[in-house]
Simulated assay, not measured.
Amino acid sequence: MYKHTMVGIVTLCAAALLGPAVATSSAAPTTVPVTAHRQLQDPVLVDCLWHPEVRPTDFMLACGDGNSRLTSLRWTDWNANSATATGVNVVNDCKPYCAVGKFHSFPVTVRLDTPQTWKRHPQVRQYTEITLTYPGARPDKFQHTVTYPLWN
């Protein structure tokens, strides 16, 4: 009889301890803080490692080889429709080939557009287009303004 009583007490204690944990985990989605909800409204910029970023200071454009990246980004706008920043595009000239090429810096204005649902996280929207505008010097064979799709 003592053995059955101890098993019953242990079972009741375990149930009492697990009850609040189960209730808390099932209630969590309905108690999302207002600030977290606001962050999901504005789109994100998805980096090479599939991390969502908001107003990053650096961003890799050439994920495969690292031969083009944005640095020193200063965002003047980030909203539900677009984002704008100024910064520097650091580009490898790949002369005579990329492994021995030299990196050159070009001032650039960056604009993010066309927010859409992020396929990996449907509750999040991401910018899907980036436009680079070079006010002065620019990489060889680049137009004054270039637009690229961003990965989804």
Rank of each mutant, 00 (worst) to 15 (best):
V10Q: 14
A15R: 14
A16Q: 10
L17K: 10
L18F: 15
L18Y: 13
A27W: 14
V32A: 12
V32Y: 11
V34F: 09
H37W: 12
Q39S: 12
L40R: 11
Q41E: 15
V46F: 00
V46W: 00
D47A: 01
L49I: 06
H51C: 01
T57I: 06
L61Y: 04
S68P: 03
L70F: 10
L73C: 08
S82P: 06
A85W: 03
T86H: 06
V88I: 12
V90E: 08
V91A: 02
V91L: 00
C98K: 07
K102Y: 10
H104C: 03
H104R: 11
F106E: 05
F106M: 03
P107K: 04
P107L: 01
R111M: 09
D113E: 09
D113G: 05
T117M: 11
T117C: 08
W118G: 05
R120E: 15
H121W: 11
R125K: 14
R125I: 01
Q126G: 09
Q126C: 04
T128V: 04
T128F: 10
L132Q: 07
T133Y: 04
G136F: 02
G136Q: 04
K141Q: 11
F142D: 01
F142N: 01
H144L: 06
T145D: 09
V146H: 00
L150D: 00
